[in-house]
Amino acid sequence: MKLPPIVSAQEWEAARQELRVKEKEVTRAHDALAGQRRRMPRTEVEKAYRFEGPDGPVSLVELFEGRRQLIVYRFFFEPGVTGWPERGCPGCSLMADQVAHLAHLNARDTTYARVSRAPQPDIERLKARMGWDVPWYTLTDGFDADFGVDQWHGTNAFLREGERVFRTYFVNHRGDEALGSTWSYLDLTALGRQEDWEDSPEGYPQTRAYEWWRRHDEYVSDSDPWEGTLDERVAALRAHARASAEDT
Rank of each mutant, 00 (worst) to 15 (best):
P90F: 08
L230D: 12
S244E: 15
T110R: 04
T111F: 01
M40Q: 15
E18P: 04
R42H: 11
R193S: 03
W183Y: 05
T207G: 01
F170M: 04
G228W: 07
C89S: 13
V165K: 12
G83R: 06
A128G: 07
A9M: 08
F147K: 01
D141R: 11
C89N: 14
A128I: 03
A34D: 10
F170Y: 15
S93R: 14
T189C: 11
L179H: 05
H30E: 15
S59R: 12
E202K: 13
E202V: 12
D199I: 04
G142F: 04
V7W: 02
D31C: 13
D133P: 02
I123S: 01
D231A: 15
R87H: 12
R50M: 10
H101K: 03
Y185V: 07
V171Q: 10
S244K: 14
L105S: 02
Q17C: 09
R238G: 07
D231H: 13
A235N: 06
M40T: 10
E227Q: 14
A241R: 15
L188D: 02
D133M: 09
T248I: 10
L126S: 01
A209S: 11
G83I: 09
L105Q: 01
E86C: 07
L33A: 15
P121V: 08
F75K: 02
P135Y: 11
S200E: 11
E177W: 08
G148I: 03
E202G: 04
T138G: 04
G154Y: 07
E161Q: 15
G35D: 03
E195W: 02
Q120A: 03
E62W: 03
D247G: 07
L94V: 14
D231K: 14
A239F: 02
E11T: 13
F51P: 01
E62S: 09
V58M: 07
A145Y: 01
H240I: 00
V21R: 15
G180N: 09
L70E: 08
D109Y: 10
D150P: 00
V165T: 12
D144H: 05
A32I: 07
L105Y: 05
V45G: 11
L191W: 12
R164M: 04
T140V: 12
T140H: 02
G88K: 05
A239W: 08
S184G: 11
G148W: 06
T207N: 00
Y185W: 14
G91A: 11
G88M: 12
A48G: 10
G131K: 03
R214I: 00
P57Y: 08
P54T: 02
T111P: 00
T229W: 11
V171S: 04
Y112N: 03
P205F: 06
R20D: 14
R38Y: 10
N172Q: 03
T82K: 14
E232I: 06
G148P: 01
R68F: 01
T248P: 01
G35H: 08
S116Q: 04
Y137C: 05
Q36S: 12
H240M: 08
R20F: 14
A29S: 12
G154S: 07
G80Y: 06
P79D: 03
G91S: 11
G175Q: 03
S8Y: 08
D217H: 12
R214C: 00
G66C: 05
T207D: 03
R208E: 13
R39E: 14
R117H: 10
A113L: 08
L159N: 02
